[in-house]
C-alpha cells in the first residue's frame, strides 16, 4: 500500500464514521486531535493493591474517571503498572460496587436498602448496648482493665494512615482490645 496514513486520510476525505476504536473519534481526529485525556483533570494517587506503592494518574472529566495509568514521574514504577493496577479503572466503572447502605435483619434471607442515618444510629446504639453489657472494669484478679471484650474488630490494611489512626483511636475509646487486621494473617 503506497498510501501513508495521512495520504489515506486525504483520499478518504475524512468521510468515516466514529468507529475508530479507542476514543470514538474519526481517524483524522484520532490521529491529529487532542486525546480525550489531554484536557482531563489529572490527579495523582497511589495504587490500592500491593505495597510496592506505585504512582498512578487518574484522568477525570465531568466528575468521573475516564482513564487511569501509571505516573511517569514516580520513581518506583516510572509510569508502568501491573495488571491489577492497570485495571483500577474498573474499581470505579463497576456495576457491582455497593453504593447504598444495606441491612440484613435477624433470620432474613435478603439484604434491604437502608439510609445512612438509620444505619449509623442503629450501629451506635448497638455499640453502646453491647459495650455497656460486656464492659469489664476489673478482671478476675481485681485489676482495673476498663475493656470491652464483647466487641471485636478486624481491618484494615487498605485504609489510609490517617484513617488507621482514627480507627484504632475510636475502637480503643470504646474499650476494644480484640483489634486485629491483615498484618496478622
Amino acid at each position: 500500500m503506497e498510501l501513508s496514513r495521512r495520504g489515506f486520510l486525504k483520499l478518504s476525505g475524512g468521510a468515516v464514521g466514529a468507529s475508530i476504536v479507542g476514543v470514538g473519534l474519526k481517524p483524522a481526529q484520532a490521529y491529529a486531535a487532542p486525546l480525550a485525556i489531554q484536557y482531563a483533570k489529572e490527579t495523582t494517587t497511589i495504587c490500592p493493591y500491593c505495597a510496592v506503592g506505585c504512582g498512578m494518574i487518574v484522568h477525570s472529566r465531568g466528575g468521573d474517571v475516564i482513564n487511569i495509568e501509571g505516573d511517569p514521574d514516580h520513581p518506583i514504577n516510572r509510569g508502568t503498572l501491573c495488571s491489577k493496577g492497570s485495571a483500577a479503572y474498573q474499581l470505579r466503572h463497576n456495576e457491582k460496587r455497593i453504593t447504598e447502605p444495606m441491612y440484613r435483619a435477624k433470620g432474613s434471607r435478603e439484604w434491604q436498602k437502608v439510609s445512612w442515618d438509620w444505619s449509623l444510629d442503629q450501629i451506635a446504639q448497638k455499640i453502646k448496648a453491647t459495650r455497656d453489657a460486656t464492659f469489664m472494669e476489673k478482671n478476675s484478679k481485681g485489676q482495673v482493665v476498663n475493656r470491652t471484650d464483647g466487641i471485636a474488630s478486624v481491618g484494615s490494611a487498605a485504609l489510609d494512615n490517617e484513617e488507621c489512626y482514627l480507627f484504632q483511636k475510636l475502637l480503643r475509646s470504646w474499650g476494644l482490645v480484640y483489634i486485629e487486621h491483615q498484618a496478622r494473617i
Partner: peptide
C-alpha cells in the same frame, strides 16, 4: 450492616509502602 465506602482515588490521605515510604494520595472524584 453493610456500609459502602469510597475507593482509594475517591478520598485523600497517605499510605505507606513496603519500603516505609509514606506517600500522599489526592481525591480525583
Amino acid at each position: 450492616f453493610f456500609l459502602p465506602i469510597a475507593a482509594s482515588f475517591e478520598k485523600e490521605g497517605s499510605i505507606t509502602n513496603s519500603g516505609r515510604w509514606a506517600q500522599w494520595r489526592y481525591q480525583a472524584v
